[in-house]
Design a protein around this nucleic acid. Structure first.
Lengths: 187, 187
DNA sequence: TAGGAATAGTCATATCACTGACTATGCAGC
DNA sequence: GCTGCATAGTCAGTGATATGACTATTCCTA
């Protein structure tokens, strides 16, 4: 009961093919869920069997045909039921945190390297989020959009993703600098 | 290859029984990993078979006997190897985010309720982290401890957990207030 | 003196998430 | 004419994670 609802929520934005969804789950939606294409195709097939989404074939001349999916009323009801059931809190679950937990019993060098690398990718993600936020709110400034815009859901989750990556970046930088200072390295 | 290293990292702090570990993974360590007891017992058995940890029986009079585990040299080597392999970035993966993504197509009331509830539990977690941080650094102030303390790993991961929950709380409160303002509710 | 919580641990099963390998078409560039 | 890339999707398998139901013992409380 997890990827399932993420897919339904993603399909609220319009018709998508499995392939397009896979792209979205690889970049934009990855602010709250990640999945590889195979998972999505499998999940889409299941959702269609259960009548929560409906697919329609689109014939294309210049490229392979595709199937576009939309959420049905039953799918919307499923989402509503999901929203009404209490959700369990989630923790961070990051390999890097495990490494840092153990760092003072290990050679810190590879951990530092990974922290610095992650800081860079986190910064890049922040920029991606910023661009996505700008695109979502269009002409409006944030405050107005949040007060009056119609489809603020993705914007709000984007905001969370941005904050998360920003925090991630700051933490990685701080920890990397600290470990470097404690165990001075040639590189 | 995930819980595995989290368990090894946790055992660096000293000898633990499966039961004690389960407690830790339910509260303190849950800042970077969560697991139910059954998973831990299974993982401990596997780690012992592979010689990465060593267990010793402790006979107790007033309560059931237990087995305490420590990390072996092989286990430390395994951790070092883990720290040296690139870690994949993780996303947030939270049901609440999925709900918020879909919120403008659903009844916002249950989502708002959950956001407010989560804000409270996040605040509680922040306090737990604060107490844990204080305990870990003892007499020292944070800066001194981070510069000179010996076993800063858990402190650093705690800091990340604290930041995460703080962000979580702020986001939940902000979004709940916003949704309330947009769709005024009696309750 | 029965019941519940805390300690300590096990077994079996289900579901999730992910990996890797694979098919097929068309377009652009060398 | 070949290679690589983007589009579009499938299959088979595995390891990781979670659920539910159990067994024991002791201490504390009502």
């Amino acid at each position: 009961m997890a990827l399932r609802h993420a897919v339904l929520a993603a399909l609220l934005d319009g018709e998508y093919s499995g392939y397009q969804l896979a792209k979205a789950f690889d970049v934009s939606l990855s602010n709250f869920w990640y999945a590889v294409p195979q998972q999505l195709y499998a999940e889409l097939a299941k959702l269609e069997r259960e009548g929560l989404i409906a697919g329609r074939q689109v014939i294309q001349r210049d490229r392979p045909n595709k199937r576009l999916f939309t959420v049905t009323d039953a799918g919307l009801a499923e989402l509503a039921a999901f929203a009404a059931t209490p959700s369990k809190p989630s923790s961070i679950r990051e390999d890097l945190l495990v490494m840092v937990q153990a760092v003072d019993r290990l050679d810190p060098a590879p951990v530092i390297a990974q922290l610095e690398e992650r800081a860079v990718t986190a910064a890049a993600k922040v920029e991606i989020f910023d661009r996505m936020l700008q695109r979502l709110r269009g002409e409006l400034d944030e405050e107005t959009f949040l007060r009056e815009g119609d489809r603020i859901g993705p914007y709000l989750t984007c905001l969370r993703g941005r904050r998360f990556e920003q925090e991630n970046r700051e933490w990685c930088e701080q920890v990397a600098a600290l470990l470097r200072a404690r165990a001075p390295l040639p590189s």
